[in-house]
């Protein structure tokens, strides 16, 4: 079981940026694409997101499964909600192209345009979000959050979480093996209650043992005066000119798209 984050974009243009840029760009992009209903506006944003994603240098082989899962899930979500049913759809003024059997939902060009807009929105959000997962060194996350004015202690907590992952996996494996020696077998029942109850012999000891060990770690940190003074970090972060340019570009995109949604055409569904 591999639970450590994969630093697939190491050495790429985005990996060389200040990690705060990679954390802030998705926020600005969310602002830019939220409630965009016009397919043309969404395509412009998606093109920018694609350029950004390519700059992360994430090898396709490493994330193929992630993309397949992500696109399958969002396509199902959009087709079911926006085409097959009227849960989240736009009919528009156009003539109905056809009606969906069983549900009877009338599909127009506006319906298809809006569904495409949603699908592209999800895919482009993934494009700006994947670099957070694959182009930030896990050891940089704590310091990046600290420099984003998150509490120093909580930022250290994020750092600590990543350090605990390998030992937690090892403890889980050890506990499962130990319980198997005692005759434990995971329930094959289809009853979710029984299935959950059968997990108790694994979840409870793993959690309790981790908490007992945590007490030692907390005592060690107390003895070293954790939290007594402002914490410093080995890794120095500083925005460079390129970082400002990338941030400025996405800030401008968010401002232009927000204005276009309120005063321009991008707040309405576009039907060809």
């Amino acid at each position: 079981m591999d639970v450590t984050p994969r630093y697939l974009g190491a050495g790429s243009f985005l990996a060389r940026r200040d990690p705060r840029v990679l954390l802030l760009v998705p926020v600005l992009y969310f602002v830019a694409v939220a409630n965009v209903a016009d397919l043309r506006g969404m395509l412009v944003c998606a093109a920018i997101a694609l350029v950004y994603y390519r700059a992360a240098g994430i090898p396709w082989r490493g994330v193929r499964a992630n993309w397949v899962f992500m696109l399958t899930f969002t396509t199902l979500l959009v087709v079911v909600n926006s085409v097959f049913t009227a849960a989240d759809t736009r009919v528009g003024a156009g003539e109905a192209l056809f009606a969906v059997p069983l549900t009877g939902t009338e599909v127009t060009w506006a319906t298809l345009s809006y569904a495409s807009t949603l699908l592209i929105r999800y895919a482009s959000l993934a494009m700006v979000s994947f670099p957070v997962a694959f182009a930030i060194a896990p050891s940089d996350l704590g310091v990046a959050l600290a420099r984003l004015r998150l509490s120093q202690r909580l930022a250290y907590g994020v750092d600590l979480t990543f350090r605990f992952l390998p030992s937690t996996v090892a403890a889980l494996r050890e506990t499962i093996d130990a319980q198997r020696v005692r005759g434990y077998e995971h329930s094959r029942s289809r009853n979710p209650f029984r299935k959950l109850a059968s997990l108790k012999p694994v979840v409870v000891p793993v959690t309790v043992n981790a908490l007992i060990d945590a007490e030692d770690t907390a005592n060690a940190m107390d003895l070293r005066g954790f939290g007594a003074k402002h914490r410093t970090w080995m890794r120095e972060l500083a925005f460079g000119r390129t970082d400002y340019l990338v941030m400025g570009g996405f800030l401008a995109l968010a401002a232009v798209m927000t204005a276009a949604k309120f005063f321009g055409p991008f707040g309405e569904v576009w039907a060809p």
């Binding site: 909580l154 979480t161 992952l165 937690t168 996996v169 889980l172 945590a214 907390a218």
Partner: peptide
Amino acid sequence: TVVFGAVGAALYAVL
């Protein structure tokens, strides 16, 4: 708070 939070988050992530 920090250590138990980190341990809990790691447990949540793994399980």
